[in-house]
Design a protein around this nucleic acid. Sequence first.
DNA 1: GCCAACGTTGGC
DNA 2: GCCAACGTTGGC
Length: 160
Amino acid sequence: MAKKYWLMKTEPDAFSWSDLKTAPGRTEMWDGVRNYQARNFMRDDMKPGDGVLFYHSRVNPPGIVGLASVTGKPYADPTQFDPDSKYYDPKSKTEDPRWWLVDIKAERDLTRPVSLPELKEIPGLEDMCVIQRGMRLSIQPVTAEEWKIIRRVGKPKAIG
DNA sequence: GCCAACGTTGGC
DNA sequence: GCCAACGTTGGC
């Protein structure tokens, strides 16, 4: 199975690139996704080693701030069973969990984060999901070509 | 199964 | 903070 590529959005006030980098093992579970399409990507399509563009939304400017990877297999999002969590879902059953997640690991910093306005200007990224108007999906597939272009622009470096 | 109302997302 | 776009809910 060929390696796939993804873009994953987060509001840095809630969970940021720096939060991921400082997590134990630079790894954290991607909890709180409550959208079926995004869930399906994690549950059915993501594989360990897949590349992840880590994207900050609702900041100025929004954009890609780091490179991460999928680690391990999908499992049930524990927050759905936690009444104290804002992601609690009373309709989800332990024996048939509704929400799934994967763990994400920080891999590389970007020498230059790639902002949304910039993404819109880069040749070859015209069809990228994240720049399309009204695109709210928090997890999006990225093509190998788009991944390559963004690496070229962002100049990944070791996490320091 | 339709679709209006509602809640959320996320750029600006 | 605004509000357009979108997804979900629930009455019928």
